[in-house]
């Protein structure tokens, strides 16, 4: 891709990598939390719901600052992770964490809605046939909620691609390490003559976002058909 400079190319690849890992790593937890919120009756249900949605309503820079406090090289979480060989501060891994946390509420929301749409009476039927709660979840609830899980994952991926505020606050804007696509656009716009590079990145961002949405729509429809058995 000769029309893309090294730095721009790096930013695109880094964003894809960050978004991929952020989505992949947060998905199991998002499914578990969504299931707990959809079906669970426990103390602290409202609290958990509020906590999960916090990144959606907090200013991203605040989330980034909190990440810096807890997962920076002086933070408790940061020191623990550094000790096990996974430093986050000013690394692309930190960008993954920031993106995952910012995308988390959207992913949980989509999956929760799709789990709530699964007929709980089918889960009862599975239990009468001898299936333990875990098996009911794995063989009935999850397969039937799969279109929503997929939609949530794609939404999370798109959100992670575009995350800016928390990322730049937490891991800064280091080309080749933490300079994601939005950070790169921001940087190019700060220097004279950077508009054309920024424009190229903007086009790529639009193409990726649209592509992801169309793909998820297509997959979700295919799966919904399969789940409905039509």
């Amino acid at each position: 891709m000769s029309w893309l400079g090294v730095e721009e190319w790096q930013a695109v690849l880094l964003s894809l990598k960050v978004a991929f890992w952020a989505t992949l790593l947060s998905l199991p937890l998002a499914i578990a939390v969504a299931y707990a919120l959809a079906r669970g009756r426990f103390w602290g249900h409202g609290l958990l719901n509020g906590f999960v949605h916090l990144p959606l309503v907090l200013p991203p820079v605040v989330t980034g600052y909190l990440l810096l406090v807890f997962f920076g090289s002086q933070g408790l979480g940061g020191r623990v992770l550094e000790a096990v060989g996974l430093p986050l501060a000013f690394r692309w891994t930190g960008a993954v964490l920031a993106a995952a946390i910012m995308a988390f509420p959207l992913v949980v929301r989509a999956i929760r809605l799709s789990i709530e749409a699964v007929d709980a009476r089918l889960e009862d039927a599975a239990a009468t046939l001898g299936a333990s709660p875990l098996r009911v979840f794995a063989t009935v609830t999850l397969p039937m909620a799969l279109p929503g899980v997929l939609a949530g994952a794609v939404l999370g991926f798109a959100k992670a691609m575009g995350e800016f505020g928390a990322t730049i606050t937490f891991v800064s804007n280091i080309p080749g390490e933490t300079q994601t696509l939005p950070s790169a656009v921001y940087s190019f716009l700060q220097v004279p003559g950077g508009e054309s590079a920024a424009a190229r990145l903007v086009i790529i961002a639009v193409v990726i976002a649209m592509g992801a949405l169309l793909l998820s729509e297509w997959l979700a429809r295919r799966m919904a058909r399969k789940v409905a058995g039509a």
Binding site: T128, L129, G130
Partner: peptide, 28 residues
């Protein structure tokens, strides 16, 4: 429920829509 050994036929059949008839029969 899953340890009670109760076969249950519901008013609405409650077959698993994402599985074939054969897979439904083999589920339990």
């Amino acid at each position: 429920t899953h340890k009670r050994g109760a076969g249950y036929v519901f008013q609405d059949a409650r077959l698993f829509p994402h599985l074939t008839v054969e897979a439904n029969l083999n589920y339990g």
